[in-house]
Design a protein around this nucleic acid. Sequence first.
RNA 1: GGGGCGGUAGCUCAAUUGGUUAGAGUACCGGCCUGUCGAGCCGGUUGUUGCGGGUUCGAGUCCCGUCCGCCUCGCCA
Length: 596
Amino acid sequence: MLKRTCTCGDSRKDQAGNTVILSGWVNTYRDQGKSLVFIDLRDRYGMTQVVFDGEDSPADVMELGSSLRREDVVSVEGIIRVRDGKPNAKLATGEIELVAQKIEVINRTAKLPILPDDHDADGIGEEHRLRHRYIDLRRPRMQKILALRHKITQFTRNFFADNGFLEIETPLLITPTPEGARDFIVPSRHQAGHWYALPQSPQIFKQILMVAGCDKYMQICKCLRDEDPRADRQAEFTQIDLEMSFVEQDDVLKIMGEFAISLYKEVGGIDLGELPQMSWKDAMDNYGSDRPDIRFDLQLADVTEIASKTEFKVFTEACNSGGSVKAMRVPGGAEKLTRKKTDGFAEIAKTYGAGGLPVVKYQGGEFATGVAKFVEPIKNELVEALGLVDGDLVMFGVGSYRVACTSLGEVRLAVAKELDLIPEGMFRGLWVIDFPMFDWNEDAERWVSEHHPFTAPLASHLDTLESDPGNCLSSGYDLVINGAEVGGGSIRIHNPEVQSKVFGLLGLSQEEAENKFGFLLNALRFGAPPHGGVAFGLDRLVMMMIGTTNIRDVIAFPKTQTGADLMCEAPGAADPAQLEELGIIMREPVDSTEQA
RNA sequence: GGGGCGGUAGCUCAAUUGGUUAGAGUACCGGCCUGUCGAGCCGGUUGUUGCGGGUUCGAGUCCCGUCCGCCUCGCCA
């Protein structure tokens, strides 16, 4: 084999005259006739133009050169020379070319299902890209993403190692636990009828590592949650998982904030600025979200009290049933937002549980259109409360507190997009803190954890844990950047009695708690230090730095909406003998030959 | 589980109101061309219109079912 001496991204003008060997894929060929052929040879590092020239290349090399087609794999030995023709400004190697002297055609490609060069690949359906991922990943864009992801994990390991964290692995085959997401489960052969669960996160194990005296732990680990995916999440994803002992909330936020800021700066070249803290209540009140996008203003105001003075049934019903009316002033919205557009925003509000989206314009000192006649009696109060100026438009979020806030909060994001209020290239992050401990679930008629069941109540709220769980605040915190949750964590409960109380509030009996979480409760009984930590979503960090909203772009071998790997065709049928061994009987036989 | 969009050549798409032999670009094959770089010019091969059923003289087009992909609500401690 002709062994390469440098890569397709290396050569520059000052190496003219050198003999080198390049190996790679034929990105494109340009056949100019019997005795002049160009190919762009591509590898991970770049592209170099190779020229087969009747005057300078041997005849047999010339002939092989002209037979090359896209994605053939070749090694070429040749002499670097400054290009005869114009340089190509698009290539780092654009000033030189390699004059072929020897060639080895290592592998010719079969008929290509898709083409990998970025220009052609832009329009290729994702289904084809996933099915033929080995070709898709050759694209420079995908190579760039894989490299960035590597840089992020590398930076992460270095940062935390420098700060005294130990990287410790935790098991993949663990015991199923109640609460949280749906588990993926794995049958046990030795104990037929018993099942492992795959971890939703290493949460309990990292806490136990703290009890075990490890003090500072980190791991870059796969987490698995059998829930329906979205554009920015899928069942199998990766967390940067961390835990620290003998710390309070501010200690954790300090070092994790330093990590985030330096990661964005060092790897992404992005200035995050400082990371302010905002309470969950303020985030909900002012931004209608627990992950507020603070790159633009457009804040919400509470006008419940004012709205209760109207005769507008939509308002008064919400007010009388303990709900809220939120208002958002859109500067200049009276002109910019047509009826058609506000109708579109109303659809968004409805998606998030609101009945609709009352709207009113403020022009010439009067309310116009929409619900103008209903809000006329509270005009002065509204103008003052919202600081309305001529040409503004006001949107109302109505419903329960959470519906009023979140529906209008989602509309806020849509309005910002519509009016182009989000500055390009800006990154703004913050810590959202002081989450509620619990949220009341109507269907189950019980409290559910806002964060997770191991989150400690704020010390100042410990007394409300049992007396008023709905108003008990936790020491949970989320890192939010540009409106996306990129990490979250909490100070954990290190007292077995408090942990038992929380399990009790979540509807787990003492017996169930011992049954399901006994090992954690035991660990807490044998000398648990105060501890807390964070988990960052690695996929989201990569997405944000590369500027994509598609999580599959940042995962080498991602899954589809139905959890399939189109390349290896997982999941597949099991061999009946395997099932027999595991003691599993299928209710209906699965056709193992089935094809899509 | 619900809602929405899509599936036609290897790929990206077109195909009038249901109407002749389903087209174009690209890839690939052949030919021409010595400075191209998304090369160009000429010619050619390529179809279970996702799958199954129905309506009709006639279905890519209409109806029903189903599969796959994407977006989304629920869900994601």
